[in-house]
Amino acid sequence: MNKILAPLYPALTPFISEIIENGANSFYYGFIDLGHPSITTRRQSYNRYSSTNYSEPNFIDKNEIIITIHRLKSNNINTFLVFNEHYYNNGVSNFIEDYLTNIIELSDAVIISNPAFFQKIINLGAKRIIASVGTHIFNEESIKFYKNIGADTIVIPRSIRTDEVVKFAKTFPELDFEYLILNDFCPFTDGLCRSFHGFPFQSVCYYTAISDKIGKYKQYGCRLCNLFEILMQNNINLKIAGRGHDPEIIIKNVKVLNEIRANKDIKNKIDFRDFVKNRYINYFGDVCNLNCRKDD
């Protein structure tokens, strides 16, 4: 079965039971120590989420995340620690050993961008390693490289076409793949974006003065329409983007994916797309504008 992977962050923890009941199989989360913001889990800028629509995307209280992980374990739910920042200074090794070791051991996997840290994190007790979308894997040889250094799951960039994702999954049945879905925020390829986000002003890609020009880089959209072939491969899991997003949206995301995943009656792509659009409107009350990069 294709698993649903939901983001986990402090504002979402009151809704964990509801999200699990509606179909989430695992959660991914980040942890930062406010004394070391530049060397911790993924954070392009310290003030990224300045809007009132967003909440803190990372756990900052170590006890809180440990309690939450134990709670999820009691429900047989897996948790994945996000450690996928692109840049680390030379203090990061001490930080990992001093602050993260027991969290690494508790989590079911660690999501990493920087290949130099794969072995280090394994040595600290990581059960599994997931190659983050920040590794920007575009071809089968890259998958082999990251598999060789310890990854058993690959997060695929949104720019990879659906048919290629399916081919990867068939070529490497021993690996799992994570397909990013919903909440498409960034027009750039994650692993190749070296800007700040929202600090101290707006992101380069969303700054109003240049949004007209940046708009010509088409965004990926929700990608629900692409799921027809994806759901035929059991080793492709659905990863909902949006740590720090409105919890109500994440709950709806899980619900709509669970309904789509559960429907086994539709046997052709056209009917499938009508079905997913119908479910999208049901939850989000908005008509799909077909302006995304839907793969044909």
Binding site: H136, S195, C205, Y217, K218
Partner: peptide
Amino acid sequence: ITNIQTNHCNKCKTSII
């Protein structure tokens, strides 16, 4: 180079640029 978008690499099918 600060940002790259890679969804062009499908024989230009989906890229405006």
